[in-house]
Amino acid sequence: MTKLVRKLRLNNYWNLVEHESWYTHMAQQGLFLKKNGVFFTYFEERPEQQMKYRIEVSKKGLDIAQIDFYEAAGWDYVTSDKYFHVFSSPAELNAPEIHTDPTQQAHMLKELNRMLMFNWILTIFGAVFSSAFFWAIFFLDGTPIRQLVQGMTTSQLLLPLFMFFLMIQVAQAALSIRRLKKNLQRGIPLQHDIPWRKKTLKQHVWAYLYLGVGLLHLFFSSMQLYMMERGTLTADHHEFSAVPLVSIENNDAFIHEEHLGNGIDYGNMYEKSWNPLAPTQYTVDESGIVPNKLWEDGSGEYSPSIMTEYYEVSFEFLARPLARDLMKWYDFGDGRLYSKVADSRFDVLYTREDFPKLEIAAKKGKKVVYVRYYGDARKSQVIEQVAIFLNLGSK
């Protein structure tokens, strides 16, 4: 049984003469072209031999009569790869060239040139559309940093990058075939023995780029799915520390109130996620009641609640705009203004009050916390607990 040897294929599939030269070189090493795959070219291992290879271009494929005609002239059909059909001939046979008229050969490239130019236009539209789509995701609501550090958005950013790479590669293909066609129209024949080795690193650059983007996407997506977690908050969840509701209320009668559903207490729960720009990020919700106490307006039993959203970003320059974005995001489109509060313990401190709701966003170093509190505690009390949570101490 003939042994097949697999080699990473030359990625610039449109460069016909470079492939011909490569196949010839491999035959001199005892490896004879068998077929082309998506990522690899497969060679048959046989005794070394001087071979010549020629690539015929035909979008519609080659019929049996045409193949028989070439074989009668000394060119054996080897394999096809979409629009490219490869023939080989032993060098000692000195078979006549498949094409002796450059202008006729240029005519055969006309349809392929048109198709590649059309593909180029499509990839431009695809790149523009994907860029516009992600621009809308990140900037339309005015909170780009929040979108960047949350959830799956980082891995999704790789799609426009992939489309950009694809657009460049298709452009190279279209312009290369167009240039080749024009040279043939001028009567300049193809040079079948060009040195392909000088472009060795460039040959696989697109394969490396696509592989890198693909691996990054796989890694980010897998990590984000693996790190996602939600459940009922218990005393055992020490890693999900938050601004404690019980400390803000400072009332011995306070008790946590359960809101069970699907096995989770939605009134006292945590949600954890991961992003390379904010590896530590989670949200903690707490709620409770104080028996025999009413809201100030007498609307019902006093039932305070708090949500703590915490991030530790990878780069400190993301922290300040993240705090600002969180205040923007949680105004729920109402355009409610927030204030910057002077407190030397924080790098930045924002607050917004709409009694009985109080919102706070604070930044210290790489740490960012957003707190939304419903209750009748004073703002200073809540800020004090935020400072303690960030290990900044009391005033």
Rank of each mutant, 00 (worst) to 15 (best):
R6Y: 00
E20R: 00
H25I: 10
M26Y: 04
Q28A: 11
F32Q: 00
K34W: 12
N36F: 15
Y53E: 10
V57Y: 13
K60N: 15
I67K: 14
D68G: 08
E71L: 01
V78W: 01
P90M: 13
A95E: 05
E111T: 13
L112T: 13
F133K: 09
I137R: 13
F138G: 08
L140S: 15
D141P: 05
R146S: 04
V149L: 04
Q150E: 03
M152N: 07
L158K: 05
L184C: 03
Q191S: 07
K198T: 00
Y210L: 06
Y210V: 00
F220A: 00
S221L: 07
S222E: 02
G231A: 03
A235Q: 12
S247A: 06
D252A: 02
E258S: 14
G263W: 06
M269F: 01
S273N: 08
W274N: 04
S287R: 12
L294V: 00
E296I: 01
G298N: 11
S314G: 04
F317S: 13
P321E: 06
K328W: 03
K328G: 07
Y330E: 08
D331N: 09
R336C: 06
L337K: 11
A342W: 07
T351M: 05
A362P: 06
K366A: 05
A387F: 14
L390T: 08
